[in-house]
Amino acid sequence: VTLFVALYDYEARTEDDLSFHKGSKFQILNSSEGDWWEARSLTTGETGYIPSNYVAPV
């Protein structure tokens, strides 16, 4: 499992996005959609889309 960590805070703009804070960790579920990845937050357990340029591999 590849884990990613948030580099910045992000406020969701749609109900499909995940809001998160810098330092939040994610499991990436689908990275084939270009700049928006489907991810599960390891902090909240919620699933949604995150901007790929806001995260980096742990």
Rank of each mutant, 00 (worst) to 15 (best):
D17G: 15
T14I: 06
A56D: 04
E46R: 11
T47N: 05
E11K: 11
L3I: 15
Q27P: 00
A6T: 02
A6P: 00
S24G: 06
T47P: 02
A39F: 03
E33Q: 14
P51R: 07
W36N: 05
R40D: 01
I28A: 02
F20N: 00
W36Q: 06
H21N: 12
R40A: 05
Y54Q: 04
P51M: 07
H21V: 14
T2W: 12
I28S: 01
S19H: 07
S24A: 14
F26Y: 02
K25L: 15
L18R: 01
W36H: 07
L18F: 10
G23M: 03
T2D: 11
L18G: 00
S24M: 15
S41C: 14
F4H: 06
G45Y: 06
T44E: 03
T2H: 11
P51C: 09
L29N: 05
D35K: 09
A6M: 02
I28V: 10
Q27W: 14
T14Q: 10
K25V: 15
V5H: 05
S32T: 12
F4Q: 03
P51Q: 05
F20G: 00
P51G: 03
T14P: 02
Y8Q: 08
R13P: 07
V55Y: 01
Y49H: 07
L3S: 06
A12F: 02
P51E: 02
S41P: 01
G34M: 11
Y54G: 05
E15L: 11
D35T: 10
T44K: 03
D35W: 10
R13A: 11
K22Q: 08
K22P: 03
G34W: 10
L18Q: 03
H21G: 09
D35M: 12
D17Q: 15
R13Q: 14
F20I: 03
N30T: 08
L42I: 12
R40G: 01
N53A: 14
S41H: 11
Y10E: 00
T14R: 15
T44H: 04
I28E: 00
K22I: 08
V1R: 11
T47R: 10
L42C: 14
S24N: 14
K22N: 04
E15C: 14
K22Y: 05
A56F: 08
D17A: 15
S19Y: 03
A56M: 11
F4W: 15
H21I: 13
D35R: 08
E33P: 10
L7G: 01
D17C: 15
V5E: 09
A12Q: 06
D16E: 12
H21P: 09
T47K: 09
A6D: 00
S31Q: 13
E11A: 10
K22S: 07
R40Y: 14
A56P: 01
D9Y: 04
T14H: 14
I28W: 02
V58M: 12
P51L: 08
V55A: 04
A39R: 01
S19A: 06
D35E: 12
V1Y: 14
D17F: 15
L18H: 02
V58P: 04
G34Q: 12
S31C: 15
W36M: 13
G45D: 06
R13G: 08
E38Q: 13
V58T: 07
Y54E: 01
W37A: 02
T2A: 12
S52P: 07
V55C: 02
R13D: 08
E15M: 11
Y10C: 04
W37I: 06
T44L: 03
Y54R: 06
D9P: 06
L3W: 11
S52T: 06
E15A: 13
L3C: 11
A56W: 09
T47H: 08
A56Y: 09
Y54M: 10
W36P: 04
E11N: 09
L42H: 05
H21Y: 13
S24E: 15
L3V: 14
D17T: 15
E11V: 14
W36L: 07
L7H: 02
A39C: 04
E46T: 07
W36K: 11
P57V: 08
I50Q: 01
I50L: 07
G34F: 09
E15W: 09
T14L: 10
Y10W: 08
V5F: 09
L18N: 01
G23E: 03
K22A: 12
Y54I: 06
F4T: 03
S32Q: 12
N53C: 14
E11R: 09
D16V: 13
I50T: 00
E15K: 13
P51V: 02
G48I: 04
E38V: 15
E33G: 14
N53W: 15
A39K: 00
P57H: 06
T2C: 15
K22T: 07
T43Q: 11
G34Y: 09
T47E: 08
T2P: 12
D35Y: 15
Y8C: 14
D9L: 03
R40Q: 08
L18K: 01
S41R: 07
S41D: 14
D9T: 06
T14K: 13
F26D: 00
L42N: 04
G23V: 01
L7K: 05
D16L: 14
G34N: 12
